Simulated scan of single mutants.
Amino acid sequence: MVDQTVNVTLTEDTKQKPVAEQLEFGRVFTDHMFIMDYIEGKGWHNPRIVPYQPVTLDPAAIVFHYGQTVFEGLKAYVTKDGEARLFRPEKNMQRLNRSNERMCIPHLDEDVALNAIKQLVSLERDWIPTAPGTSLYIRPFIISTESYLGVAPSKTYQFLVILSPVGAYYKEGINPVKIAVEDEFVRAVKGGTGEAKTAGNYASSLKAQELVSDKGYAQVLWLDGLEKKYIEEVGSMNVFFKINGEVVTPALNGSILEGVTRNSVIRLLNHWDIPVAERKISMEEVYEAYEKGLLEEAFGAGTAAVISPIGELSWKGEQLIINDRVTGSVSKRLYDTLTGIQYGTEEDPFGWIEKVK
């Protein structure tokens, strides 16, 4: 068991906090960060909060050459009463360890990790923006630090947490986006690292994203890596389709990341008695539903956007216009409910909120 006592060194040079209206995602960082070290035979040790600073690594550190690293993403919110809160952070810690398992990184005590995050957020609570839709993005991550040019798991690691105040994802309310179905590049395959939150998955997605962005599309809809037939994710989000009254999302299959927002959406739909199914769904099925007038809504779900409605899908030269490019009722209800729970304007019947003292 790691000693949960976190040594704190306060900065002597505080930064100027940004104006809420000028916030971008992931550009500004708070005054402090958390670090904890791992050495084989000693385990995780020396948890500490220090002034935000560069990380110094040997050029031969394994993370640079073989990509042995994992990360998470969650947010801190503040209510109208000034209460700081997290949304289902234990799920992120659980997923972090699942990613660790896949990437041969030592297991992290989830209570220690969550305690560190809460202590850091508490210290930096004045950095949580209060304007509507804004929040404090939390990025926990682990890097392999051993200096060794060999393809083997590192014997040393660092677990770090940094914080970034972020603006509202949607400046003028949630609006449906244009998505291109990707039929050349693949995101992941079963047995690979698709179900882990690791850097390489995102690096390999950049080329496809770059190509569709040049054509005016917001994201890529990824198909499976074997047959390029079954839908998997949209950009870096899980994806849902409402077809003839039923909401369908691809079943977790070993290449799809298990999203915290995805799980929350499914829980809410069940709570509302809206039919929801986790199963294989092909692009052909979606197209047939569209042709029959049964494709009612489509949306992505993830931490950054919460719910991102899809207004148009481009597939094999066809443009599938969904719900006249208008946000659907289920998408809107999910967005309003999830953000309401996060910001404390809606009841939390599931006990999803973790308060920060």
Rank of each mutant, 00 (worst) to 15 (best):
K118D: 01
I266D: 13
V166G: 01
V220H: 03
E232A: 05
A131T: 11
R187A: 04
E288H: 12
A60N: 11
N175H: 13
P106R: 07
E12F: 03
N323W: 07
F185A: 14
K316Q: 15
L114S: 03
G41E: 11
T79H: 09
N46Y: 00
E285N: 05
K280A: 06
Q209I: 10
L252M: 13
A131I: 04
Y287H: 12
T337I: 07
G328P: 00
A199L: 12
G82S: 10
Q342G: 03
F87R: 10
V181K: 10
E90I: 02
I105C: 09
C104V: 10
S164C: 08
G245Y: 13
T193H: 12
T339F: 01
D224R: 06
I266T: 14
I243D: 00
L334E: 07
K242W: 04
E227R: 12
I321E: 09
W222S: 06
P309V: 13
K178D: 13
E101L: 12
T145K: 03
D37T: 14
Q158N: 03
V70A: 04
E210G: 11
P51Y: 05
N46I: 02
P250E: 14
E285V: 10
L223M: 09
V177T: 05
I39P: 00
D111T: 15
E288V: 13
S213F: 03
G73T: 09
V276F: 12
I307G: 04
K228D: 00
G254S: 08
M33E: 09
L114M: 14
Y66T: 07
Q16M: 04
I353D: 02
P47G: 11
E90T: 10
A76L: 10
S213N: 15
V186W: 11
A168M: 04
E101S: 09
E124K: 08
R325K: 15
W272E: 08
A113D: 05
W222D: 05
K355E: 07
F350M: 08
P54H: 04
R48Y: 00
E297D: 05
R325V: 12
R27H: 11
N97K: 07
I322D: 02
K75M: 07
I62C: 01
L334N: 05
P47H: 06
S308R: 05
V326P: 00
V181F: 05
A196D: 11
E124P: 01
N270S: 09
